[in-house]
C-alpha cells in the first residue's frame, strides 16, 4: 500500500511551496483543523486548569457526541431538508448533544470524580481511563446490538455524513486563487464562536471570575466564600458538553471517522495541544490548537502533493511537536511552573 516512491525533485517542491493557491489552501485548512482541535481541547484545558484533572474520558465524550449526532441526522432525515433546514437542524442537534453530554459529565463528576480530588493526581488519570474503557465498550455493545454501520465499530460510519452534508458545504468555492469549502468556513466560524464564547464566559461572567480565581488559588477562593465544588461541577459539565459538540462537528468532516477508536484518535492530539499550550492555560490552548492545525494541514498537503511518502505524516508531526516543545519549553508555551509537576 505504501511504497517508497522517489520523492519529487526539489525544484518541484519549491514550486508547490510558492504557489499562492497552495499556501492559502494550507492556511485555510489549518485554520479549519485548528478550530476543530480548539473545540476538542478547550474543555480539557478548562477541566485541568481548575481541577488538575487529566481527563482521559474526554475523547470518549467526543466519540459519543459523534454517534449521537449521526443517529440524530439519520432519524430526523436531515438529508432531505434543504440547506437552511439541514443547517438549522444540525445546530439544534449540536445544542442537544451539548446538554446531554454536559449532564453525563455532571453525573460522572458528582458520583465518581469528586471522590478523588484529595488523592494524588495519578488516581484521576486512572479513574478517567477506566471511564473511557467502559464508555468505549458500552458504545461497542450498542453499535453491534443496534447494527449501526452494519455492526462495525472500528470502521468509520459515514452514512450520516453522506446522507446529510449539504452540497453547499461540501463543494469548493473559488475566489481568485483562494479555494475553500463551505465546511471549512463553517468549522472556522464555529471555532471563532467557541473561542469568543469561552472568552466571554471567563472574563465577563461572575462564574468565569470564580473559575479564574479557583485556577490560581483554590483554597483562597473557598475562603472568600466561593463554592468551588459547584464550580468544579459546572466546569466539568461545560468541558464535557464542548467535547460532545466537537464530536457533532467531526461527524460532518470526511477526514474523521465516526467509530469507537475515535475516542483515542481525538484524545491524543488534544493532549498534545493542552501540553504544548501549557497545562491549564486557555490562551496557550488557543495558540497551540491553531499551531497544531496548521502543521497538520501542512503534513497532509505534503503527503497529498507527494513531497513526503508517509500516510500519517500529520500524526507523526503532531507528536513531534509535543516532543520538541517539551524539550525546548518544558512547561509549554504559556505554562505556569507548578501545574502538573507532581505526579
Amino acid at each position: 500500500m505504501i511504497d517508497v516512491l522517489t520523492p519529487l525533485a526539489l525544484a518541484e517542491t519549491v514550486d508547490l511551496l510558492t504557489s499562492p493557491s497552495d499556501i492559502t489552501g494550507v492556511l485555510i485548512e489549518g485554520l479549519a483543523k485548528g478550530s476543530l482541535y480548539l473545540m476538542i481541547a478547550v474543555g480539557l484545558t478548562l477541566i485541568f486548569g481548575l481541577m488538575d484533572v487529566i481527563n482521559f474520558a474526554h475523547g470518549a465524550f467526543t466519540m459519543y457526541g459523534a454517534y449521537i449526532a449521526g443517529v440524530a441526522v439519520l432519524a430526523l432525515g436531515v438529508g432531505s431538508m434543504g440547506f437552511v433546514g439541514a443547517l438549522g437542524t444540525f445546530f439544534i442537534i449540536m445544542i442537544a448533544v451539548f446538554v446531554l453530554l454536559a449532564v453525563l459529565g455532571v453525573i460522572f463528576e458528582v458520583t465518581l470524580i469528586r471522590k478523588l480530588y484529595e488523592y494524588p493526581p495519578i488516581f484521576m488519570i486512572l479513574l478517567t481511563f477506566g471511564i473511557t474503557i467502559t464508555m468505549e465498550e458500552l458504545m461497542r455493545m450498542i453499535v453491534e446490538f443496534r447494527d449501526i454501520n452494519s455492526g462495525q465499530w472500528d470502521i468509520g460510519w459515514d452514512a450520516p455524513r453522506q446522507s446529510s452534508l449539504p452540497s453547499e458545504l461540501g463543494g469548493t468555492t473559488e475566489i481568485g486563487f483562494v479555494n475553500f469549502t463551505g465546511l471549512q468556513l463553517m468549522q472556522i466560524s464555529m471555532g471563532v464562536a467557541v473561542l469568543a464564547g469561552i472568552w466571554a464566559f471567563l472574563n465577563k461572567t461572575r462564574y468565569g471570575l470564580f473559575v479564574r480565581a479557583g485556577v490560581e488559588d483554590e483554597e483562597m477562593a473557598r475562603a472568600l466564600g466561593i463554592d468551588i465544588n459547584r464550580t468544579f461541577t459546572a466546569v466539568f459539565a461545560v468541558g464535557s458538553g464542548l467535547a460532545g459538540m466537537a464530536g457533532v462537528m467531526l461527524m460532518w468532516d470526511p477526514l474523521w471517522d465516526v467509530n469507537v477508536p475515535l475516542a483515542l484518535a481525538v484524545l491524543l492530539p488534544a493532549f498534545v495541544i493542552v501540553i504544548v499550550g501549557g497545562l491549564g492555560s486557555f490562551k496557550g490552548t488557543v495558540v497551540a490548537s491553531f499551531l497544531v492545525g496548521l502543521i497538520d494541514a501542512l503534513g497532509t498537503w505534503a503527503f497529498q502533493t507527494g513531497v513526503i511518502q508517509f500516510t500519517d505524516i500529520d500524526q507523526l508531526m503532531i507528536f513531534a511537536i509535543l516532543v520538541v516543545m517539551l524539550i525546548l519549553r518544558p512547561r509549554g508555551l504559556f505554562g505556569v511552573k507548578g501545574q502538573g509537576d507532581h505526579g
Binding site: F210, R212, R222, A223, L224
Partner: peptide
C-alpha cells in the same frame, strides 16, 4: 466556603492574591 458565608474573613500570611487577576477582579470575587 460556608464558614466564609457565615461571616468570617481570612487575611492570610502570604496575602494570597489572585496574581493574574486585576485588582478590581480580586475585589469583585
Amino acid at each position: 466556603y460556608e464558614v466564609a458565608d457565615a461571616g468570617i474573613g481570612w487575611i492570610p500570611e502570604e496575602r494570597r492574591m489572585f496574581g493574574r487577576l486585576s485588582v478590581e477582579e480580586n475585589l469583585r470575587a
